[in-house]
Design a protein around this nucleic acid. Structure first.
Length: 164
DNA sequence: GCCAACGTTGGC
DNA sequence: GCCAACGTTGGC
């Protein structure tokens, strides 16, 4: 899919299936950080390798969840480094074409989890006019890492804190 | 579980 | 380089 890539983005959305790794798992990790390994899509990898900088803000999205939506916030805390799960034959993310000398897959480390005042569901996001152009909401959009505009990011925070 | 919409693979 | 077949994503 051809995205208009804003490589200067300081805001991102990262999808994870909560059954595999949830926002709350991140909170419980030692030092509350985790390398975002297992990504095996070149466009998502390129975002991590080329565009994501330490300090960039992340919307932590729960996909394949009931309901799907934004579960919390975090940040890039370390730039992209080789994803060593690709080298482990026992890992489900093993890629025989990746080597220690020439790693094929890279991943940033995310940390500093911060709770939202409330969960923001996909349905609510679809209902919000301000978010109508959000890449996440595009038909057929499956990319697991997506740039987010500052306006979109702020809008999510606004929704999360607007409950009674 | 279904299935639309993708991305990848591999034969040609 | 084309494209059919296949595998994956992810909402519903």
């Amino acid at each position: 899919m051809d995205l208009e890539i804003n490589s200067d983005s300081k805001f991102w959305l990262m999808k994870s299936e909560p059954d595999v790794f949830s926002f709350f798992d991140l909170e419980r990790r030692e030092n509350q950080k985790e390398q975002w390994d297992g990504v095996r899509n070149y466009q998502a990898r390129n975002f991590m390798m080329n565009d994501m900088k330490v300090g960039d803000k992340i919307l932590f999205y729960h996909s394949n969840a009931t309901p799907p939506g934004i579960a919390g916030l975090c940040e890039v805390v370390e730039e992209a480094k080789p994803d060593n799960t690709a080298l482990d034959p026992k890992s489900e993310y093993f890629d025989p074409k990746s080597t220690k000398e020439i790693p094929r897959w890279f991943a940033v480390t995310v940390g500093k989890p911060q709770r939202l005042e409330s969960f923001v569901s996909l349905t609510e996001m679809r209902e919000e006019k301000e978010l109508k152009d959000m890449l996440l909401l595009r038909k057929g959009q499956r990319l697991s890492i997506l740039p987010v505009s500052q306006q979109e990011y702020s809008c999510i925070l606004k929704i999360a804190s607007s409950r009674k």
